[in-house]
């Protein structure tokens, strides 16, 4: 337990120090959301209607961007090998790493989304709904991404491959995240149904992600 705590705190510290890039994801999110109206046009009504979709896409891409730091830096400096040979179960160790990763990259996205909702002319209620669905959905993005990061960790230029591997797996999260946000704003469907499925997806990924990642790491780094 102490070992897992130490790993957790170490990962948090590394993320917030110089060069850790904890806030780069938020910056990317901001830039992507800012670029959208340049392509779509400044029509506020249209932006408000597309707002949840834009925010979800931006958050998805931003969390994808940070994924290659999840395991690759540890692989480079050798600490991943230590984690592999440690007595702590590898599944728990990578789960803790992913949790720390979500806290430093996923949670800032959730917190900043209402502010970006303002840029997209979303109402307070709609912004709240998007933030809530992001809070429920971004852990799934991180834990699905964990599998991709584990699969590509030994490759030297894994970044692009990682995106190709992970993005199709995140489609359900995107569908139900945007559906739940839209349901809260206007939709005929009640908010609870898609939101429940979104939460279920997150819970499933919390289990499958670490197990698959541990298998992939053991196979890949033999």
């Amino acid at each position: 337990m102490t070992a897992l705590c130490a790993l957790f705190i170490r990962d948090l510290r590394l993320a917030v120090r110089v060069g850790g890039g904890a806030l780069i994801g938020v910056l990317f999110f901001l830039v992507v959301v800012t670029l959208m109206p340049f392509a779509i046009g400044p029509d506020l009504g249209l932006l408000a209607r597309m707002g949840p979709a834009i925010l979800w896409l931006g958050a998805l891409l931003a969390s994808l961007l940070a994924l290659d730091r999840l395991l690759a830096t540890d692989h480079e400096d050798g600490s991943l090998d230590l984690i592999l040979t440690a007595r702590v179960p590898l599944e728990l160790a990578v789960a803790v790493k992913a949790l720390a990763h979500w806290l430093t990259t996923g949670l800032p996205l959730v917190v900043s989304s209402p502010l970006l909702g303002l840029l997209l002319n979303l109402e307070a209620k709609a912004s709240g709904a998007v933030a809530l669905t992001l809070l429920a959905g971004t852990p799934a993005l991180t834990f699905i991404g964990l599998i991709g990061a584990a699969l590509t960790v030994a490759l030297r230029r894994g970044g692009l491959l990682l995106a190709i591997l992970v993005l199709p797996l995140t489609i359900p999260v995107l569908i139900f995240g945007v559906a739940a946000s839209n349901a809260a704003i206007a939709g005929p469907v009640p908010f609870g149904a898609p939101f429940g499925i979104l939460c279920a997806l997150t819970l499933i990924s919390l289990v499958i992600g670490p197990i698959a990642a541990a298998v992939a790491l053991r196979q890949g780094l033999e």
Binding site: L23, I24, L27, L30, V31, T34, P37, P42, L44, L47, L118, L119, N121
Partner: peptide
């Protein structure tokens, strides 16, 4: 009647802000 419109001036300032954040990063 809204906190933000994609007015040319506001938008330019927003882009400037993004560039600052990029330099700081």
């Amino acid at each position: 009647g809204t906190y933000w419109v994609w007015d040319a001036r506001l938008t330019s300032v927003l882009v400037l802000f993004l560039m600052y954040l990029g330099v700081i990063a």
